[in-house]
Amino acid sequence: MSSTARIERDNAWPEISFEERIGTAEFRIHEKAHITVNGDSCRGCTTRECVVACPANLFVPTSDGGILFNYENCFECGTCYLVCNKEGAISWTYPEGGYGIVFHRT
């Protein structure tokens, strides 16, 4: 049975959850968001590139067709504004100096 075999393989070497994965990185969170998403622009968007591409999984589609965005665990990589096709949907800056992602062993 292939499904059992699959489960066994997964158990032998479990993948971590996304929360655990993102928990391995250090984020010094500032009280102010450095990226803001304009929900109105997102409502008309069908492609939702950001939802797929953001490596920190910060863009979450809502049931009413909008996008929920969290800035806290952001890698500051720039992927979202590069892939976004909606002019003005994402306004992107770096966090205040000293805050945001702090890499240790990269």
Binding site: E15, E20, A25, C77, T79, F103, T106
Partner: peptide, 25 residues
């Protein structure tokens, strides 16, 4: 995750623990 499961890669990293996840453009 799929790359890690590839039969040529999996034996190299078996039992390894993720210490840090990172991303950059």
């Amino acid at each position: 995750a799929e790359l890690k499961r590839h039969p040529a890669i999996a034996p190299l990293i078996e039992g390894a623990e993720v210490k840090e996840y990172s991303a950059h453009v």
